[in-house]
């Protein structure tokens, strides 16, 4: 599973690791795996704040109670199912482009989050999850005493 390594930003890029990453991306591209729906579903955006991170996912046409959000440490998992329309006798498809079925996706967050304070809302087919940074994981300011 491809996981965005967002914590890479802000560091000096290591050319060797970049090469490896590029290689694995290219391999993945030609392996045909990318064609399987659900691999990278749902598409997500990650917004970074100082004390929290916001993850938005486009999951149109799913009931709220069919979406599962779980967090373990700094790993966020989105799973659920999109239900297709069941055709009756004598009905037929002209086109079928939308994806159906179960999906599950895990992303790595830049820090541990406070699991009890996670806020999630689903509106117009867009899921927005606000994950506050865990108190224990916050940077501590250290006062310097002058003697």
């Amino acid at each position: 599973m491809f996981e965005p390594e967002i914590w890479r930003f802000g560091r000096a890029l290591d050319p060797w690791r970049e090469m490896q990453r590029l290689q694995s991306e290219v391999n993945r591209l030609f392996s045909g795996f990318t064609q399987t729906a659900g691999q990278d579903y749902p598409p997500i955006n990650i917004w970074m704040g100082t004390d929290d991170v916001v993850v938005t996912a486009e999951i149109p046409g799913v009931d709220v109670d069919k979406i599962d959000i779980s967090v373990l440490g700094n790993r966020l998992t989105l799973s659920g199912a999109r239900e297709g329309s069941e055709l009756k006798e004598g009905e037929s498809y002209h086109r079928q482009e939308r994806n159906y079925g179960r999906f599950s996706r895990t992303v790595q967050l830049p820090f541990n989050v406070e699991a009890s304070k996670i806020d999630a809302k689903y509106d117009k087919g867009v899921l927005t999850i606000t994950l506050p940074r865990a108190e224990s994981d916050k940077p501590k300011k250290i006062n310097i005493k002058s003697e």
Binding site: E58, P60, G61, S85, G90, S92, Y93, E97, V126
Partner: peptide, 19 residues
């Protein structure tokens, strides 16, 4: 992305437009 299917009385179109 759209799904279009045909029933006896109608043609039904579903389009994914999040947002």
């Amino acid at each position: 992305k759209v799904d279009i299917y045909e029933t006896k009385e109608a043609i039904v179109m579903l389009a994914d437009m999040p947002g």
